[in-house]
Design a protein around this nucleic acid. Sequence first.
DNA 1: TTGAAAGCGCTACCAG
DNA 2: CTGGTAGCGCTTTCAA
Lengths: 351, 351
Amino acid sequence: MAGIADVARLAGVSKSTASRALTGSGYVSERTRDRVAEAAATLGYVPSTSAVSLATGRTQTVGVVMPYVNRWFFAEVLEGIQHALLERGLDLALYDAKPGTAGRRRIFEHFLARKRFDGLIAVGLEPEDEELERMLALERPVVSVVAATSATSVVSIDDGHAARRATEHLIDLGHRDIVFLGGGSTAHWAHVDRRRMSGYIETMTDAALADHVRHVPSDVTCPGGYAAAVDLLGDARRRPSAIVGVCDEVAIGAIIAARRLGIRVPSELSVVGIDDHEYAEMFSLTTLRQVPREQGTAAVALLERHLSDPTLPPTEVRLKPTLVMRTSTAHPDSLESAMAVDMRATPRSGA
Amino acid sequence: MAGIADVARLAGVSKSTASRALTGSGYVSERTRDRVAEAAATLGYVPSTSAVSLATGRTQTVGVVMPYVNRWFFAEVLEGIQHALLERGLDLALYDAKPGTAGRRRIFEHFLARKRFDGLIAVGLEPEDEELERMLALERPVVSVVAATSATSVVSIDDGHAARRATEHLIDLGHRDIVFLGGGSTAHWAHVDRRRMSGYIETMTDAALADHVRHVPSDVTCPGGYAAAVDLLGDARRRPSAIVGVCDEVAIGAIIAARRLGIRVPSELSVVGIDDHEYAEMFSLTTLRQVPREQGTAAVALLERHLSDPTLPPTEVRLKPTLVMRTSTAHPDSLESAMAVDMRATPRSGA
DNA sequence: TTGAAAGCGCTACCAG
DNA sequence: CTGGTAGCGCTTTCAA
């Protein structure tokens, strides 16, 4: 365990000079800098992080708080954050704060107070007032990824826009009987889900389809979407011609349900999602793409700015999702028209 | 930022006494202990972790290295670890070491060397020799979750056993033409996948079905299994009567492919997986259940033992997966027999 | 049972 | 440009 004193001795300089040479702060002649670097290299010197932290007050660590790590969006954001931190030589302290658990309480009451990080990234946290206060009381910059508050900097997509585009796409195709699937299955409506539903409702209303607005609640998971869709589609009288999923996982659940019930997608049912989940391609799901990984790296970049300039006011970075057309959506009457086209086209293949 | 000096002053004792009272080490009278505790509480005292680390040499942090966080198994293990750590008041430093990336190199070359943790948990890491050496050179206990080495303590399931049970189940049902799907799609065969395939081959051989041994490679993901299965099942001459998926994700991919191709599961094709993935239920997948979350908590428990007793030799904890029967498997001729049963049963429903 | 003092390993200030 | 020195906030001997 070589310390900086050993490095200094080997290089024939004082500890202070060695420190300056190594950290690159203050004036050091090039020759000594090289000698120190060489000494450090031959000794395999690695500074003690706790000593550095104690002396500088900085931990070189970023804390990440999220309610889940086993969901696509969160895992992707986490990877993005990790990637960006690695590049900057920063450590990542993870806090998995599942809503309503003792662990979450402990995190907010004890772990955060230890301040083992220079800044915090809160991903889709939906904090209670008290939790938010605790985070702000830390006097460390915090950046949220997906949030309803503007007390912190925020990185997110425009959820309302995403849902509007999805709904418009369906309406343009000729659908009127469009259901919004997912969210609101428990007392707690996540803000994202709510914003997306609002986008759907606005668009329906603008298209004079307010009468057709229909929300079918479900857990915001693939099995959740599946279960709700089995229910919805199983009854022919309730069956819509199209579904806007609150997210891809739910939309995919709906597609699986449709297939099980022998309902053809897209000829008998159009489905559109929001996310561009890794499974979207496999299900040919038309969706509004967001790239959570980029949101993670954007959050790190933003946090870095806060770190270097503590006066920087809360900032918003809002990304626009883009429509990715696959084949889970079509005209409501496409079965017939597809057949008609086929028949007209027959001569060609028969020729 | 109240420090221990403030607490000591308020309690009317010395710093050393305050420290002993707070950490619970050494003799302190009950009265003073209470006074100190009260003073700490009123001041909202939180010890500086870097100062504590510097003085004690312990970081109260566990490092977790894994190649992915966005796959079911890894995310679940991570949650298990986090949960167990939270209970013990330990922080979690995450290192996402995706194979072949610059980030992974940086982690092994720089981040680990900083030793910002008292111990390390390596999840499904499949480290190169040099990487393993670096971890061991840290002189910190390391516990692996899923590993081929016995240089470290290991927590895992018995993969060979899982694959044997899966294959036996199919053979008992009357299948002979059983394909092992997944793994080996790239130059790198993960050890887990290899062990599972070995279990399959052994079982086939023991049942005098060595001639029927067939491996169809695929990426070990749901889309990977899907793509390979579309290929395999699309050609009627190559189509097996049953599939053992290297894991549930692959098995589910196969089921999705079968459905798309209009092949009925289980009457025309039986599929069994290994994992009991969160989507297994939705696809009625028969599988061998493992609970990665438990492996995470077991790893923490084991690491804790190493921490308190540095002489503890590497230990293995091997969990046995259990067969969960759902409805993705049946007799190979079940279509006919099911119909026969139906016809015989008709009077009952018709009565 | 308590207190004084000496570090833990590093940075940063202040002379030189 | 360099060296000495005083902390950063806590734990831990060692005496009392």
